[in-house]
Design a binder for these strands. Structure first.
Lengths: 325, 325
DNA sequence: CCTCTGTGTGTAACCGGTTACAGATAAAGT
DNA sequence: ACTTTATCTGTAACCGGTTACACACAGAGG
């Protein structure tokens, strides 16, 4: 490994001088700078981030904690975060929590141990003490909180919008799929939908589910039509479940949207490829990731007037699983 | 920040002793150990990885470089890698290369600067000089190479299998969708399919595409049926494109699999949720990730007899877009 | 009683950067 | 001519761990 000392020797100067040209601070003579630059490229030197991080007590790393990158909603977030951060010179330490406190704590712990300069997390456990003790910039993503800056889309509003849409489009026996109880945004959208449905003059029933996984989605869909075979409007807990329900409805020979309308949530990329294409409530996931990253960077740089929380718009995307009028 | 010195002071011992109990090496008296343990939990101390990493010249970080986490094939890989690595105490530094050399080099660079102990990469540019100069354990994932250990599935065989399947199931005017030219595995499976099709007594045509993206998949599907409207068997470049083709076929009122059979590649989770469910060539992505991680760990630990390369089996998954007999 | 060995602990160097501080030189101001 | 100031550079301390080495002591073996 070639170190700053090697460069210093090669250039015939002290390490301090090399450091100064590297960081472009302090005075350095023009020809000295040149010699140093030459030595650097001669030796193909690149500074050791770890040493820098140790002295400065901060790295250029940022911790990103997501529930499960395998759920297609999260890669969008992750990508947004990464694109924004990498452009600003930060790198990503990634962890999947599986909504499991233990794993979450472990990751937060190692984020700290690695001197990250900030953390972006989609957690349901912000109130846990490790977060309180944290004196690092923290931004919540896809989650809201009183106590921390956050970037999220209004789940309640999204839930209302989904329900309202189905009601307006003439669904009369609506089934509302309730997502996993331990996931906050799932509950928000559920509450929003309940709210709207209660207000309207429709019958509705609720199907409780406990996961968003692909493997189980099929099962929820079957259960849905087994239990509520005459439903004519389904509000899915997310697009994965929505797509599974579309699939199951087709399988059972139901006409979409004539016999049953279905509305998803998230607008993951594959929703526009299902058959029929899935109407859904869109969350701008990629943008949310970017915004969270921007917010975090501003917080790290202590820029004044940082918005403490950014609420992103949800939006109805009308495709083929809802009626036209 | 509480450091090892604070612990030493609290316990009334030297930092060396604290370090010894932390790492469980060297001699430490039973009661001294106890005092140190108490001081550690009293102060809620956790050691600074950066300092450790600097002295030891190795961290517990591993760099993972993927083309694009937004493509549903890669999260599976990533998850496999992560599950295996995190269990072994390693953490992940993640980068998306977008198959772009520039980004790739940047990430490799920062991996090195951060003292990673190993790198897992899905690159098409192994032969680039930065990899040669690397004296770090490196494992290729989803890519093969003469020069580095690798974990991949046999694309050529997969391509053959896809073609063979369609031929056997009676497709007579096959269309082969060729994936992006710069992506090695896409070309392997294409070659395999070509090989098999050439051997068989069928007509076939080729549609060239330049991306795997969701946004464009729809376009390829339309182009496919515009150009080859009478095709009765499609070998898609991957499942994303496959699902788009299924969708477009349905849209155009074609019966699947009677009028047109379609076979995908990868077996991403959503393939079993399309309508009809997509027959495909499965790559065991999650397992590939795990194997790559295991291989890397063994290499890092210098365990003897590490298999230099692991070829994972591809497998036909028969679902509803191919005929039964 | 003396040596040898195993155990327990502390001191200080070291990892590769950054920066406070001091010293040198030259140009500018009085 | 003398002070002041700006520019340039080097020395060494420091970040928070790890570990080589030295030293002390106790019990075993002769």
């Amino acid at each position: 490994m070639v170190t700053i000392k090697d460069v210093a020797r090669e250039a015939g100067v002290s390490v301090a001088t090399v450091s100064r040209v590297l960081n472009d601070n302090g005075y350095v003579g023009a020809d000295t700078r040149k010699k140093v630059m030459e030595a650097i490229s001669e030796l193909n030197y690149s500074p050791n981030e770890v040493a820098r991080s140790l002295y400065k007590r901060e790295s250029r790393l940022i911790g990103l904690l997501l529930p499960d990158i395998t759920n297609p909603f999260f890669p969008q977030l992750a990508r947004g975060v990464e694109d924004e951060l990498s452009q600003a010179g930060y790198r990503l330490l990634l962890g999947n929590s599986d909504e499991n406190i233990q794993k979450e704590l472990e990751y937060i712990q190692t984020f700290i141990q690695n001197n990250v300069v900030g953390i972006i997390t989609a957690t349901n456990h912000v109130d846990y003490k490790i977060y309180e003790a944290l004196d690092l910039p923290l931004v919540l993503l896809d989650r809201a909180s009183e106590n921390y800056p956050a970037v999220y889309a209004d789940g309640r509003e999204g839930g209302r919008l989904a329900a309202k849409t189905l009601v307006e489009k003439g669904a009369e026996r609506i089934t509302l799929v309730k997502g996993p109880a331990n996931i906050k945004p799932a509950q928000d959208r559920f509450q929003g939908a309940i709210e709207e449905l209660s207000r309207a003059d429709v019958d509705f029933s609720v199907l409780s589910t406990t996961s968003y996984s692909f493997e189980e989605a099929q099962g929820w869909a079957e259960e849905l039509f087994d239990k509520f075979s005459d439903t004519d409007g389904v509000i899915a807990s997310n697009d994965i479940v929505g797509i599974a329900i579309v699939h199951e409805a087709m399988e059972r020979g139901k006409r979409i949207p004539e016999d049953v309308q279905i509305i998803g949530y998230d607008d993951i990329p594959q929703s526009r490829l299902s058959y029929p294409t899935l109407s859904t409530i869109r969350q701008p996931a990629y943008e949310m990731g970017r915004e969270a990253a921007k917010l975090l960077i501003r917080t790290i740089k202590k820029e004044p007037g940082v918005e403490q929380t950014i609420q992103m718009p949800v939006e109805l995307v009308e495709r083929k699983t809802t009626r036209k009028e």
